[in-house]
Structure formats: C-alpha cells, structure tokens
C-alpha cells in the first residue's frame, strides 16, 4: 500500500450522538482515521458498537435530531459540515453507499437501464442515453452481469445479482469513496463469497476507496487492506488487516477473534457481558468491565491512542504510555463487576 498518495478521506474526532428518551446515545464518540485511495478498510465490531452510525454519519445519512461534530477532509479539502446541503450534493457523485438489503434500494417498477439513467442524470443532467448505457455496461461487466439483462426489471434477478446491481449503481459515477454496510449479510454463503471477491477486485478496476462494515471477521481478512475494530463508539484498534489478524493488540480484538467460530475452531470461547449502553458508557476504558486484562487505571481513565510495534494504532493501557499511568494503576482490577448471563446473551 503506497502512502505517497493523498488520503481520500481523513476523519478527525468525529462524533455522532442520538437523542433518546434516556439521554444522548454516543453512537460514535471521537473517531479518527484516514482512508487511502483504492483502499478497503474493514470496520468490525459487535452490533450496537456504532459501526453503522459511523458509515451513515460519513455520508450524512442520519435521522433528524442527531448531532454530528468533527472534521472530515475529503480529497484534501475540508468537507462542509456533515449533514449540510452541500454535503448531500456530494452523495452519489463522490460518496456512494451499498446497503444490506438490495431490493429496498431498487425500484421494482423501473428497468435497470432506467435506474442507471436516473442515477447518472441526477448528477450530470442531460447525458445521453447512449452514454449512460456505455458507462453502465462497463460497470455491469465488472460485476458479472450480462449486458443482455440491461433492460430487465429488478425482480428478474436473483438476490446475489441484485446486490451486484446496487454495487454497479453505486459505482457508475465512479465515486472516490463508498460505504458498504453489511453488503453480504442477506446472501447465501457461495454468493457472499462471490460478492466479496468482486469487492476485493474493485481496486483493480476502479479507483474507489471502500469502507466495508461487517460483523464477519473472515470477510475482512479476505478482502480488506486495513481493519478498524470498533467498540462502544470508538475505534480501539486500527491497522493493516494481516497484521491485526496475525497479532491483535487490543484485548477486545483478541477476544473477538477468539470467539469467532471458524473451520479450525476446536473449543468455544466468548467475551463475557455485552456491549455497554451508549447512553451511559463505563468510565475509563469502555471495554474494562469485560476485559480479562483490566487494570486499575482502566476503570478511571480513558486510554490514549498509541502506535504499537506492529504499526497498528491501539487504545489500551496495556500498551502505555507508562508515564500517564498513576502509581498503582497497573495493578489488576480485582473487583470486576459482576456479569451474570442475564446481561450478556
């Protein structure tokens, strides 16, 4: 991965809070990361960790009443305030989105050709039908959809084909950045593998950076260049995917990898407890109540992001800095809060 190119997207201290009846839910709470051109960044974590909110927040697709703050730089230029009108104009042309359920994104009454025409003309009014067809067939070919089907209706396609269609629709304007939110969750195993292969091949055909949100760690290992592990609204570990999977540095990443059932699973292991309530997250490190290595300092002070030997950035007191740990802070946290199965499930 070359680092010479300018970052496509650079996010600093992004926060997305929702108002709920019980108070503000800090779904994304101080997230920073960079995305390089043509890179696929996997975003993983349990549900309720803010993955989807982060993805939608970056595209300005948030419900009314949500609070967004932070700096987003896109292709070197500071972005207009997220959720502003100017931001929305970038959607589709520069920022794309792929959703979990493809059929909800396709209009059953419109031919595929009309979908493409509408998408292209929304940003480039007056483009001829012929040029739209040319651009569309180009992306459809990469997605493995035969050009004979260009005039078909969405219902004439199978589930996997529909997801390829929505990817093609997101790509036809050649956006520089796409958020794919669990794009394969609704699909079958073999079709999922096909789609993952297509996404992994994208960087060869298009110059698009992808934020791939998934709960399937195998997909990340298979398709992503880098991975960000999210827990309770924060990125706790981010780095080269191979590196993170080979030697995870944050206890949460370690536990997440260990609890995943794969072909080589010989015994079950799991993380006690469940992700915290985002309205009232635990003090200090948000993972400390579930962490097997929790220390005293973890319960009181939020950890500092730190670059570790493998090159990944980790938020965990185990990696220091020593100078900021108060005296005695390194002692193991004996009184781990009682975790009954009731809370976890």
């Amino acid at each position: 991965m070359s680092t010479t190119g300018q970052d496509v997207l650079s996010v600093r201290d992004l926060r997305v809070w929702y108002g709920t009846e019980r108070g503000a839910a800090r779904a994304v709470d101080g997230v920073s990361f960079d995305l390089r051109p043509g890179e696929i960044l996997g975003l993983v974590g349990e549900s309720g960790c803010g993955k989807t909110t982060l993805g939608r927040g970056l595209l300005g697709l948030l419900p009314r009443g949500a609070f967004v703050d932070g700096d987003v730089t896109f292709k070197g230029k500071p972005m207009p305030a997220v959720a502003s009108k100017e931001y929305r104009a970038l959607r589709g042309a520069e920022l794309g989105m792929i959703f979990q359920e493809p059929m909800t994104r396709l209009n059953p009454l419109m031919r595929i050709s009309e979908h493409f025409e509408e998408t292209v003309r929304a940003h480039h009014p007056g483009v001829s039908r012929e040029r739209v067809r040319h651009a569309a067939l180009e992306v459809l070919r990469v997605m493995g959809i035969p050009p004979t089907r260009y005039r078909s209706y969405p219902h004439e396609f199978s589930g996997g084909m529909r997801q390829r269609l929505t990817i093609a629709l997101a790509l036809v304007l050649r956006p520089a950045f796409i958020v794919a939110d669990e794009p394969t969750t609704a699909l079958d195993v073999l079709v999922e593998a096909q789609i993952i292969k297509i996404l992994a091949d994208l960087r060869r055909e298009f110059d698009t950076s992808l934020l791939l949100i998934t709960h399937n760690l195998g997909i990340v290992s298979e398709a992503c260049d880098r991975v960000a592990v999210m827990y309770a609204g924060r990125i706790v570990e981010i780095g080269d995917a191979r590196q993170v999977f080979r030697s995870p540095q944050h206890p949460y990443t370690q536990e997440l990898l260990r609890s995943t059932i794969s072909l080589s699973t010989t015994g079950l292991s799991f993380i006690p407890g469940s992700p915290p309530d985002l309205v009232d997250p635990p003090a200090g490190c948000r993972f400390h109540p579930r962490c097997p290595h929790a220390m005293r300092v973890c319960a009181t002070q939020a950890p500092v992001p730190l670059e570790v030997a493998g090159g990944q950035r980790v938020e965990c007191w185990l990696h220091g800095p020593e100078s900021q740990v108060p005296p005695g802070g390194g002692e193991p946290l004996h009184v781990r809060e009682e975790l009954s199965v009731a809370d976890e499930a």
Partner: peptide
C-alpha cells in the same frame, strides 16, 4: 416520534 434534540453544550 419525539426525537430529542441534542444541544451542543451537552457534548
């Protein structure tokens, strides 16, 4: 539905 508005100071 009532969605609470978040004030900047809170954050």
């Amino acid at each position: 539905k009532r969605l609470q508005k978040i004030r900047r100071e809170e954050t």
